[in-house]
């Protein structure tokens, strides 16, 4: 069963694409699919950060606020500082991740409350920095500094290239580094990992810092696409990002799954969303489906969870 568990989301994805194509054959055109995948890049980047957090058995509810802060920082600094603004925006994301990781890992608060609180702080920072409004990014700085994210290379949108490069890096980190092994150990069982000599606190800190980094990158790309930074830019992202991770097959109980699965999960979400829009289901009403799918995916994958943590 576990042998095939990894392929179920892929089969689901193919089935979903075929179902949507049955309603509208033009959906299968390469350009439509490519457009769809480039639109999902920002969601994918945020879901990537969420993946490792869930992989170690935690949750991060602050990521949409973190993405918003970095979009605002980017929009504020980019006219004067160009590429440096991107670096600052990403560093800000890492710092918020560091705070979440510290509060959760070192101060030992449950991750949902730690990140709920840090999310509140990040949201305040975004509102304060932006003066509660959306900040335009003019065409010149946008083309000068953000073309790597929003242009096209080899006739494929750069969002896709960025996603693939980040995915490749994340896979290397996850599969081939001691940190990756430490994450797996931590997710499989914290007491055992501690006895095995894994440095729990450091691993948690790094995981949350990566989550902040990926969320910030998501905010930067989003700001590039929308030509603005705003404190509410990523408001509809949290549920789809968690759903993408869980639907891809990363278990909330921790220890199984990974970033490649999140790619499938994200594509599933995006195809499902497109399908529902075709049928004419309102974007907000789609939350019913995602909410139920989330619960279903968790309940199906939670079989191996110890009872102790099912609070």
């Amino acid at each position: 069963m576990t042998k095939f568990a990894g392929t179920i989301p892929w089969l689901g994805l193919i089935a979903a694409i075929l179902i949507v194509a049955a309603f509208d054959a033009s959906f299968l055109r390469p350009m439509t699919l490519i457009g769809l995948f480039s639109d999902s890049a920002t969601l994918f980047l945020m879901a990537l950060g969420m993946t490792w957090v869930i992989y170690i058995g935690s949750i991060d509810l602050s990521l949409q606020a973190v993405a918003a802060v970095s979009s605002v920082i980017l929009a504020l600094l980019i006219p004067q500082y160009g590429m440096v603004a991107i670096a600052v925006a990403l560093v800000a994301g890492v710092l918020f991740g560091l705070v979440s990781g510290f509060v959760h890992g070192v101060l030992k608060l449950p991750s949902f409350i730690a990140t709920l609180a840090v999310g509140g702080i990040a949201a305040t920072a975004a509102l304060a920095l932006s003066g509660e409004r959306s900040i335009q990014i003019d065409a010149t700085p946008r083309t000068d500094s953000l073309s790597w994210a929003i242009g096209r290379t080899l006739d494929i949108p750069n969002e896709i290239w960025v996603s693939l490069i980040v995915l490749a890096l994340a896979m290397v980190i996850e599969q081939m580094t001691p940190f990756g092994k430490a994450m797996k150990a931590l997710g499989s069982g914290e007491p055992a990992a501690r006895i095995a000599g894994i440095r729990i606190q450091r691993t948690k800190l790094i995981v949350f810092m990566f989550a902040g980094l990926f969320a910030a990158l998501s905010g930067v790309v989003l700001a590039g696409r929308l030509s603005s930074g705003s404190p509410t830019i990523a408001n509809e992202f949290l549920l789809p990002a968690i759903a993408a991770v869980v639907l891809g097959g990363t278990s909330l109980a921790g220890g199984s799954g990974g970033v490649l699965r999140t790619l499938v999960g994200t594509l599933l979400i995006v195809v499902a969303r497109t399908g529902m829009t075709f049928i004419g289901i309102n974007a907000l009403a789609q939350q019913i489906v995602f909410g139920l799918v989330l619960i279903a995916a968790v309940s199906l994958s939670a079989g191996r969870a110890q009872k102790g943590i099912m609070k």
Binding site: N282, F290, G291, I295, A302, M310
Partner: peptide
């Protein structure tokens, strides 16, 4: 009964509630 952690069950159902209200 489905053994979903409460934060996830309530997060998911919260979105379901929002969706139902929207409709």
């Amino acid at each position: 009964y489905l053994r979903v952690p409460s934060f996830m069950a309530s997060l998911g159902m919260g979105f379901v509630g929002l969706g139902i209200a929207t409709i």
